[in-house]
């Protein structure tokens, strides 16, 4: 913070100010912590995977089609989010906003399907209290879903700031950081898709 005048005009906008660079590095460090956080959830899920008690197994509940739709929605949103940053580096404010809005719509679709899935399970009688397996399923998926929801709210705030203030080193670094977060959530989803859903349907 004490070196705010230290500006490098040749770097991409988000790296131009000292604060921007520190924030980006700091956020990556935070993502390291998020890796540990999700690993612990995964570890607990695996440890309790076979503990279904009187409840159903994953195989009896999961629906391949639904999972595939959710995966494609989030994967595509990660792609459009990347395009938004690409536009940002071309200094195209309108492009950033349009692609980010597409990203948010896809993200909201993902959340919608996830909520549908949860409600559906509850109707079938599978809840947080059914068995250790399902407790961990809801908490692991819920934590990811909560992250995505927070990401949607956060990016909306940033888009308002972007519309008001335009692309500056400060807004650019904020948008860039939110994109890191969004991509990271897709990375987590890849593992949920693979280890929870696909493996759940194999067994």
């Amino acid at each position: 913070m004490a070196h705010d005048h230290n500006v490098n005009p040749n770097a991409p906008l988000e790296y131009q100010s000292e604060t921007g660079r520190l924030n980006i590095t700091g956020f990556w460090t935070f993502l390291g912590a998020e890796i540990a956080l999700f690993s612990t959830l995964f570890a607990s899920y695996f440890a309790l995977q076979a503990r279904v008690g009187d409840g159903p197994t994953s195989n009896e509940m999961f629906e391949a089609g639904l999972v595939m739709i959710m995966t494609m929605l989030l994967l595509t949103s990660s792609f459009t989010c990347g395009i938004a940053i690409h536009e940002m580096r071309a200094n195209n404010k309108k492009g950033v906003i349009i692609w980010m809005i597409i990203t948010l719509i896809l993200g909201a679709g993902f959340i919608g399907y996830e909520l549908y899935e949860f409600v559906h399970y509850v109707h079938e009688g599978v809840t947080l209290s059914t068995s250790a397996h399902w407790s961990m399923f809801f908490i692991l998926l819920g934590t990811h879903g909560l992250h995505v929801s927070i990401g949607i709210g956060w990016i909306i705030l940033l888009l308002i700031q972007l519309a008001r203030r335009g692309l500056t080193p400060k807004t650019a670094s904020k948008v860039f950081i939110s994109s890191l977060y969004w991509h990271f959530l897709d990375v987590v989803w890849i593992f949920i898709f693979t280890c929870v859903y696909l493996m759940g349907m194999v067994n």
């Binding site: 607990s44 440890a47 309790l48 503990r51 008690g53 250790a132 397996h133 407790s135 809801f138």
Partner: peptide
């Protein structure tokens, strides 16, 4: 919130 992760009910595992 009634989850059964570390409990003795619902096939939870306190050792986790």
């Amino acid at each position: 919130f009634g989850s059964v992760i570390f409990t003795l009910q619902g096939d939870g595992n306190p050792m986790l």
